[in-house]
Amino acid sequence: MRRLGVAGVAAVAVLAVAPPAQAATPGWVSSHETHIGADPATVHLPPGRGPLPVALLLQGGNVPKESYTRFAKTVAGFGFAVAVPDHRRAVGPVTGLFPESLQLQATVDWATAENTRAGSPFAGRLDPGRLVLLGHSFGGAAGLFSLGNACTPPFCFGPVYQRPAALRAAAFYGASTGAPIANAGVPVALVQGDADGVNLPATARATYDALAAPPKAYVTVHGANHFGLTDTQTPPGARPDPTPQTLSQDDSIDTAAKWSALFLRASLGDQLAAAYIYGFGDAADPLVTVVHERG
C-alpha cells in the first residue's frame, strides 16, 4: 500500500465522514416488482434521482432474488436502478435459478420499454444506454463470460450471443473462471472474501490476473466468506460454505456493496469514486485490501 501525503490524509479524513456518492440508507430505497422478459424481478430505486444507470444482478445458482435485498438496496443508494431477476431454466437435467448471458440484452430491452411506458414506476428514471453488471458465484461467472461475444455453456445456449453495446462495467463477488476473459472495453472488479471456502481466493485472483484488459480491481474483504453479500449465511437453495465468516453479515454486505458501487461509478466517469477506488480507498477502509490496474 503506498503512503499518503498530507492531501491524501485529508481526503481520507473527509471520506470517513462523507464517502463519495454516499449510499442512501437502504430503507430509503424503494422496491418495485416487475418482469424482465419472463423473469419475475425486483428493481430497487434510490429517491429523487434519474435517469439512472441500470445494474443487473445475476444471482448465485439457486439463490433466490430475495436473498440480495440489503446488498441491492445499498448499491441502489449510490445512484443505480438495481434489477434482481429470478431466472429459471434448465442446465442439463437440473432446473433451477441459473443466470445466463442472454439476460443482458433482455434487461436493456426492458429498461428501454419501461423508461417510456405511461404509468410505469420507472418512467424517466432509467438510462438504458448505461448497463452495468453485478453477480454472485454462478452469476458472477455467467457475467464474466458474457463480457466476450461468445456463447459459452452452461452460461449461454442456443442463439448467437452478442454483448450489448450499453454494457459499461461489471463487479462480481465470489466469482471465477477457468479461462481468460476478453473484457476489453468493460472495466471489471472482482470482490472476494478471504474466508471463501467455495470460490477460493487463489482461484479468484487467477481470474483477475487473466482478465485481458484494465481497468480492473481485485478487492479482498477480510473475514467474509462465499455468502458475504447475501442477507443470511446459506440462503435457501445454496450449499453451505464450509468456512465460517468472521465479519458480521451487515458489515460484509455493506463493504461488498460500497466497493462494487464505487467501482461502477468510477467506470462511468465519477472522478471522486475513481479517486477512492484507485487512490486512497484502500487506506481508508480497514476491511479490505485492494489491487488494481487503471490502464
Rank of each mutant, 00 (worst) to 15 (best):
R2K: 04
R3Q: 03
V6A: 08
A7H: 08
A11Y: 01
A13I: 08
A16S: 09
P19E: 06
A23M: 01
A24W: 11
A24V: 07
T25L: 13
P26W: 06
P26G: 04
W28T: 04
S30Y: 01
H32R: 11
E33F: 12
E33L: 10
T34Y: 12
H35E: 06
D39P: 01
A41E: 01
V43N: 04
G48L: 04
G50V: 08
P53I: 03
L57Q: 12
G60A: 11
N62D: 15
E66N: 13
E66S: 14
Y68K: 00
R70V: 15
R70Y: 15
G79I: 14
A81I: 11
V82F: 13
H87V: 11
V91M: 10
V91W: 13
P93S: 10
Q103H: 11
T107N: 08
N115H: 06
A118K: 12
G119L: 03
S120D: 12
P121C: 10
A123F: 12
L126H: 07
P128F: 15
L133T: 12
L133W: 14
G135K: 13
S137T: 10
N149D: 12
T152D: 00
T152E: 01
F155L: 00
C156W: 09
Y161Q: 01
Q162Y: 04
A166I: 07
A170W: 02
F172E: 01
Y173S: 01
Y173C: 00
G174V: 03
S176H: 06
I181R: 05
A184T: 13
L190D: 06
L190P: 10
Q192G: 11
D194G: 10
D196T: 04
V198C: 00
T203C: 02
A206W: 10
A206V: 10
T207N: 04
Y208E: 08
A213I: 05
P214M: 05
T220W: 15
H226Q: 03
T232N: 04
P240V: 11
D250Y: 01
D251Q: 08
D251E: 09
I253P: 01
S260G: 12
S267W: 10
L268I: 04
D270W: 12
A273R: 00
I277D: 07
F280Q: 03
D282R: 05
L287A: 03
V288W: 05
G295L: 11
